[in-house]
Design a protein around this nucleic acid. Structure first.
Length: 423
RNA sequence: GGAGAGAUGGCCGAGUGGUCUAAGGCGCACGCCUGCUAAGCGUGUGUACCCCACAAGGGUACCGAGGGUUCAAAUCCCUCUCUCUCCGCCA
């Protein structure tokens, strides 16, 4: 959520920057709503002030045994005027809040302006895409031939976009999770968390999935819970409605969780294989930081995610998303894209964003810079470190051998009981 | 699932209809005093929003959430959420 004050003070600049996201926003609606709201509020508060004053007088009169019928009759009229005003005000406030919650974050000023992924900026590349003296296979071919991924039975158990991992495949997924967690906790200063995989409405509003993107989420029908689409939701909400101490910051959390996404509107995209699933595993990094250092923290977080790929010796590139390609809550985002020989393309495997105070304002996560100072919103950051299923895809495709087997990256072997090769 | 208890300001904790404009304490901030590993004394101390120049000043709301009774609610009534204790069931 944006600060209402910047909308009032500098609407033209906000309009201009918001336009770079490619979203249509009814600004006239905002201006009139804001005006209506303030008028109605001021009017009602005047009435309440009068009512409180009269009530006090009645109390004094009654105490001294005097007649209070006149002020009581007057307060009755004021009360009715208040009742008549409350309904309309509540309606205006609800509309105002809906509007504010539906506004995406403002892109940071130094983010490149663009319309789509084509306008993203290449920041750096690491590693060389491998060359094969045989036709490179897709991971779903490799997985099925090695009998470690079963898409047919995954569909039988749940449906399309669900996969059953088997044997060494299941273990490889688990090895990747443990490897990533150990790296981030052991060497990169993150505290490991194991949060609920379901979240309530307030949590999903806090990080920005609700109210606008309910269609992307799985909802539990019998109660007001949603399956989390990412551990960003629970991790960022850990300190929702809390006042933090300056010395606590930055806070660095890492968590492995399953993630659940409806993938509505992505029919026909990545229909085969593990790339786009309704349920997938992810190791997520979240930071809460002071505003002054959040962009340094973003750079660090990207490097933390990159380190996973470096140790796995998987070639990748870092891209900076342009204004038109960024997510709802983000002010600046870097994507890590890993090389997939089966597709001969770089595919997203991590997305690291600085949301500045956008989520903190929704979730009321604040701290005091000085003991006596006013509370200020922290900056929140999140990044995949990494998407586990896609990492497994990258391992299978980059480490595939001519004989159909797959070599296990060295750093994973301790997690695989010393296994060096699948198949 | 059943029974009971509870939810008050950064923290602890009083408060069962009208100076609650929330006692008291801790913590914190500022000042004073004092020189001996510290204490004492005084003053102040929330959040959000609205009016206003985002100043001074003023107002409204907030005692888990929502609704109700009343001229008046932390206080009475209803619903919900969460926490704790006990019982049952269960990984």
């Amino acid at each position: 959520m944006l600060d209402v004050k910047i909308l009032r003070d500098d609407l033209d600049r906000v309009k201009e920057r918001m336009t770079t996201r490619g979203v249509e926003i009814d600004w006239a609606e905002f201006v009139s709503l804001d005006r209506e709201r303030r008028d109605a509020l001021a009017n009602l508060e005047r009435l309440k002030e009068k009512k409180n004053r009269l009530s006090g007088e009645i109390g004094k009169l009654k105490k001294s045994g005097d007649d209070a019928t006149a002020p009581m009759r007057e307060v009755g009229e004021v009360s009715e005027a208040i009742r008549n005003g409350e309904g309309p005000l509540a309606e205006i406030e609800a509309r105002f809040e809906r509007f504010m919650l539906s506004l995406p974050n403002l892109p940071n000023v130094d983010v490149a302006i663009g319309k789509s992924a084509e306008d993203n900026r290449d920041i750096r590349r690491w590693g060389e895409p491998p060359t094969f003296d045989f036709p490179a296979k897709n991971h779903w071919e490799i997985g099925e031939e090695l009998n470690i991924l079963d898409f047919v039975r995954g569909a039988k158990l749940a449906g399309a976009r669900f996969t059953l991992y088997k044997g060494a495949g299941a273990r490889l997924e688990r090895a990747l999770i443990n490897f990533m967690l150990d790296l981030h906790t052991g060497e990169r200063g993150y505290q490991e968390m194991l949060p609920p995989a379901l979240g309530n409405r307030a949590a999903l509003i806090g990080t920005g999935q609700l109210p606008k993107f309910e269609d992307d989420l799985f909802r539990i029908e019998s109660s007001e819970y949603f399956l989390i689409p990412t551990a960003e939701v629970p991790l960022t909400n850990v300190h929702r409605e809390e006042m933090l101490e300056r010395e606590d910051l930055p806070i660095n959390y890492v968590a492995y969780t399953p993630c659940f996404r409806r993938e509505a509107g992505s029919y026909g995209q990545d229909v085969r294989g593990l790339i786009r699933q309704h349920q997938f595993n992810k190791v997520e990094l979240v930071k809460l930081s002071e505003p002054e250092t959040s962009y340094d923290e973003l750079e660090t977080m990207v490097q933390d995610a990159e380190e996973v790929l470096k140790r796995l010796k998987l070639p990748y590139r870092v891209v900076e998303l342009c204004t038109g390609d960024m997510g709802f809550a983000s002010a600046k985002t870097y994507d890590l894209e890993v090389w997939l020989p089966g597709q001969e393309a770089y595919r997203e495997i991590s997305s690291c964003s600085n949301c500045e105070d956008f989520q903190a304002r929704r979730a009321q996560i604040r701290y005091r810079k000085e003991k006596k100072g006013r509370p200020i919103f922290v900056h929140t950051l999140n990044g995949s470190g990494l998407a586990v299923g896609r990492t497994l895809v990258a391992v299978l495709e980059n480490y595939q051998q001519k004989d159909g087997s797959v070599v296990i990256p060295e750093v994973l072997r301790p997690y695989m009981g010393g296994l060096e090769r699948i198949g």
